[in-house]
Structure formats: C-alpha cells, structure tokens
Computed example of a mutant assay.
Amino acid sequence: MNRPVFNIEEVNKIIRNRRSLFVAQFKENDPVEDHIIQELLENANWAPTHKLTEPWRFTVFTGEGLHKLADFQSQLYKERSQKNGNFIEATYQKLKENPLKTSHIIAIGMKRDLKANLPEMEEVAAVAMAVQNMYLTASARGLAAYWGTGGPTFWPEAKPFFGLEEEDKLMGFFYVAKPNMDRWPQGRRGPISEKVQWVRE
C-alpha cells in the first residue's frame, strides 16, 4: 500500500473546530441517519490500541431504545438515591427525559483483556481516542454531539445492562443529534506555549 496523502489544512481545521453541543442545542424529532452513526463507529474502530486489544465496546440506543435507556437509568437512580435518602426529583426527570431529546446515544464501554497484561490506563486511553474519532467525524458532518459521564456511568450495578463485566468500565455516553441552530460555537483554549517545555540539550 502506498503512503496515503492527506490534506493537512483540512486535518487541522477539523481538529481545531471540533465542538461539544449539548441537549439544549439538539434538534428534536429529526433523527440522524443510521449509516452516519455507523460511519462514526467505523472511525472509532481505527483508534490506536496497544497489542490490538481493541477494548472499545459500544451500545447504540435510538428510537424506542432511547426509552429503554431512559427508563433504566432513571429507575436505577431512584432506587440508589432512595436508599441513601438523597432523591432529587429534578435529577430523576432529567435522566428520564433527556435521552428522548436526542437522535442516538452511544454507551461507551472499555472491555478489559486481562490476558494482554496491559495497564488499565492504556485501555482507557484507547477508548478515549476512539471517542475522539467519533467526535471529529460528528463535527465534520455538522452534527451536535458531546461525551457525558452522568447518570449510571460510575454505578457498578449498571454494567451488566451494557454488556460489561466487573473488571470492565462504563466510560459514559456519546450523544448525537442534528443541531437546532446554524451558528457553530467559538472555541476557547489557552496558548500551547504555556503547556509545553522543550528540552534540546
């Protein structure tokens, strides 16, 4: 295979203009086509992965599947919070209603390959890079998307619902929808010079 030729200006443009857009900026009742979601997932599959463990696992919720996720996470929140005496009705309603305002929600899992004998951090980083590939693809498509770690992300008892074992990790949810506006958010970053040291000698 010959070395591919890339358009570096376009690469820089998509990386520097990737943005997170949230539920309030989602266009409701106008779903993204499944083949575009499949494109996001295919690009995620080409993230770097040490020893080719490919630890990313995705569960895609759309259509009636969004109701299934909404019911699961809101009910689990209710059970957990009532045990602890800190139930908040607004949180319950948000968990029950927000999934229904989006087109697709992709649950992000890290499947641990214990035989590979890799530090967990490397597997978490591989999944994060897979999500970045989805982020870039979504932005290139002009879609609204963000990675959230709310709801059941850190609840161990939620893992089986997403096909994960005890040693695996649920790393949050990637929300995708069409935007309800034409304006693209302005980015904010401090100068890279403040975050880099060069050692030349």
Rank of each mutant, 00 (worst) to 15 (best):
N2M: 14
F6V: 14
I8A: 10
I8H: 07
V11P: 03
V11C: 12
V11I: 14
N12E: 08
N12T: 06
K13C: 06
I15V: 13
R16E: 07
R16K: 09
R16W: 01
R19E: 04
L21E: 10
L21C: 09
L21D: 04
F26I: 05
F26G: 11
N29Q: 14
V32I: 11
I36P: 00
I36A: 10
I37C: 05
I37S: 06
Q38C: 01
E39F: 03
E39T: 11
L41G: 01
E42I: 00
A44T: 00
N45S: 09
N45F: 01
N45C: 02
W46N: 01
W46R: 05
P48L: 06
T49W: 00
L52F: 09
T53E: 07
E54H: 11
E54K: 12
P55E: 08
W56Y: 12
R57L: 12
R57T: 13
F58W: 10
F58T: 10
F58E: 10
T59L: 07
V60S: 02
T62I: 00
E64K: 08
G65Q: 03
H67Y: 09
K68D: 13
K68R: 14
L69H: 05
A70G: 13
D71Q: 10
F72A: 11
L76K: 11
L76A: 11
K78E: 15
R80M: 15
R80D: 15
S81E: 15
Q82A: 11
Q82L: 15
Q82K: 15
K83Q: 15
N86F: 14
I88D: 10
I88F: 04
Y92T: 01
Y92P: 02
L95S: 11
K96C: 10
K96E: 13
E97Q: 13
E97N: 15
N98W: 05
S103E: 06
H104A: 08
H104K: 08
I105W: 08
L114T: 02
L114I: 01
K115Y: 00
K115Q: 01
N117Q: 07
N117I: 01
L118S: 03
P119R: 01
M121V: 10
M121E: 09
E123D: 12
A125V: 13
A126M: 11
M129T: 07
A130H: 07
A130I: 04
Q132A: 08
Q132C: 06
N133I: 02
M134Y: 05
M134A: 13
Y135D: 12
S139N: 08
G142F: 07
A144F: 03
A144R: 04
A145K: 02
G148K: 06
T153P: 03
F154W: 07
E157S: 02
K159C: 06
K159F: 02
F162P: 07
F162W: 02
L164S: 08
D168T: 09
F173W: 14
F174P: 00
F174G: 03
F174S: 05
F174A: 05
V176M: 05
K178V: 03
K178M: 05
K178Y: 03
N180D: 13
M181A: 12
R183P: 00
W184H: 00
P185S: 04
Q186E: 14
I192P: 02
S193M: 07
K195F: 12
K195P: 04
W198Y: 14
W198C: 09
V199E: 15
V199C: 14
E201H: 09
